[in-house]
Nucleic acid binder design. Structure first.
Length: 467
DNA sequence: AAGGGGTGCAACCGCTGCGGG
DNA sequence: TCCCGCAGCGGTTGCACCCCT
């Protein structure tokens, strides 16, 4: 112990000796935290690990004032701070840099995090860019805590009615409802065969997966496998972001059969991002995260993979990037607005036919926890009224529907083979992504044109809607 | 009051990408 | 082209605090 502390004092700095002389005496745990994480350089000192002391903070702040950020490995050289560059950078970024916002996340921040996570997955650093004063570490911790909470509560990862601004399906494939030509163009695109689709989507890696080969069953296996993994592990939330929202789906969810015991209220699952103070009104998005489904109750999230629906896309040049998109959200009247608005006209999802009630955010207004509690209540009451029939086979999700098997791949429903099994629409089917997609698309005049068997789709839809 | 479990946060670790030599 | 160092990112861990029994 003493030797270790002595080794610290051997680290000298021509300008900061006086200031630093007390560092290591100040930290009783320092000696216990001498570690191997960062390799020491230069002065033969042993790098310290563990909690930072105020004196160390002062040293680092002073260093940054003098030399600016960056060159973190030189901190150890220019000061007596026995911390590796990594540690310094982290300490500065997470605790010392100016304008850091401390304390609990606000409701707006919470909501934004949810939306962003639905959109981009575990891209904490990117999220942090859109939350001024917040660090990626903070956001990550918050999210992990939230996951645990929701897991315990048996709730899906995303609150009910979360509207995601521009998940790739809505962003890339949803035409503007106000532009029939564009709509048709999207339909044409999605109905295209292999070659044209490749040309049109050649910048979209995910679309490439979808259309690179019309032998979907083969080319989409990895994707489908992911889906089945998600479903198999109950990771419903992973599916959620890919789902185009539609009022019909919402209505189906809220049929008395499903929520007969739920407390009466207006569309309790509708939370629109457009209501978010940080979003512009132009950014109503209609990608709804379906609320909890008991077949996908758990909020388990593979840690290292982004959400399926948040697959990072290589956006075409005419589209704004993720960053710019969020800039747009947070600063709706930026100079880019005009451009972005015009882009929106092309890429934004159609506005909901059923407008969210003004108080749709009411449940959100009380914070996420309240939302979760509310959702748990509803879920508890509705849980017994439906059953699961999800069929997962060999890495692909084969959805028996009207005697056909459809491989569901993030929105593309591909008929592959005949099946004898008769599909009965149960609740679990209703909330299945494929069904949701189909119902949504069909209702919107097949504008997306992916589903190829419209007759069976109609049947399913009519059953779905109780027809 | 004590202890055991849960929770949240800070920090570390390992990997990856990038740029310079 | 390869290697090396650096910065950054995301996942994981450790620990202090809190709450409940």
């Amino acid at each position: 112990m003493v030797e270790r502390e002595m080794s610290y004092t051997m680290v000298t700095d021509e300008s900061d000796d006086a200031m630093y002389s007390s560092i290591y005496n100040e930290s009783p745990s320092a000696a216990d935290n001498i570690g191997s994480g960062c390799t020491s350089r230069g002065k033969g000192s042993v790098l310290k690990k563990g909690p930072w002391t105020s004196t160390e903070d002062g040293i680092l702040i002073d260093y940054v004032k003098r030399h600016g950020e960056g060159n973190w490995n030189t901190v150890q050289k220019h000061t007596s701070l026995a911390r590796c560059g990594k540690s310094c950078r982290l300490r500065w970024a997470n605790h010392l840099r100016p304008n850091l916002k401390k304390g609990a996340f606000s409701k707006e921040e919470e909501q934004l995090i949810v939306e962003m996570h639905a959109r981009m997955g575990n891209k904490w650093a990117q999220m942090a860019e859109h939350l001024p004063g917040r660090t990626d570490n903070e956001i990550k911790n918050y999210w992990n805590t939230r996951i645990k909470r929701r897991q315990r509560a048996g709730l899906p990862l995303y609150p009910p009615g979360t509207h995601v601004e521009d998940l790739h399906w809505s962003q890339e494939y949803h035409p503007s409802t106000s532009n029939v030509t564009d709509r048709r163009r999207h339909q044409d695109i999605l109905q295209l065969g292999n070659s044209k689709a490749n040309v049109l989507f050649d910048d979209l890696t995910f679309a490439n997966v979808l259309f690179e080969d019309l032998n979907f069953a083969t080319s989409l296996l990895p994707v489908a496998s992911d889906i089945s993994d998600m479903l198999g592990t109950g990771a419903s939330s992973y599916m959620s972001p890919i789902l185009p929202s539609h009022s019909n789906i919402r209505q189906a969810f809220q049929s008395p059969e499903h929520f007969q015991n739920a407390a009466p209220q207006k569309n309790p699952r509708s939370c629109s991002i457009s209501d978010h103070p940080m979003y512009g009104n132009n950014h109503r998005t209609d990608v709804m995260i379906p609320e909890s489904h008991h077949t996908f109750t758990d909020g388990m999230v593979p840690t290292s993979k982004p959400l399926f629906g948040a697959v990072k896309l290589e956006l075409p040049s005419f589209q704004y990037s993720e960053t710019s998109g969020f800039d747009q959200w947070t600063t709706p009247s930026t100079p880019q607005s005009d451009l972005l608005d015009s882009v929106d006209t092309y890429i934004q999802s159609p506005p909901p036919l059923e407008i969210d009630e003004p108080d749709c955010f009411s449940s959100c207004d009380t914070g996420l926890l309240d939302m979760l509690l509310h959702e748990a209540k509803i879920k508890a009451s509705a849980k017994h009224s439906f059953s699961s029939t999800t069929c997962i086979t060999n890495g692909t999700q084969n959805v028996p529907r009207g005697g056909e098997t459809h491989i569901v791949t993030s929105g593309a429903v591909v008929k592959t083979e005949e099946m004898d099994e008769v599909w009965e629409p149960k609740r679990a089917d209703v909330i299945r992504p494929d069904v949701l997609l189909e119902s949504s698309w069909q209702d919107q005049q097949s504008r997306f044109g992916i589903v190829r068997d419209s007759s069976s789709l109609s049947d399913a839809l009519s059953l779905l809607l109780g027809g």
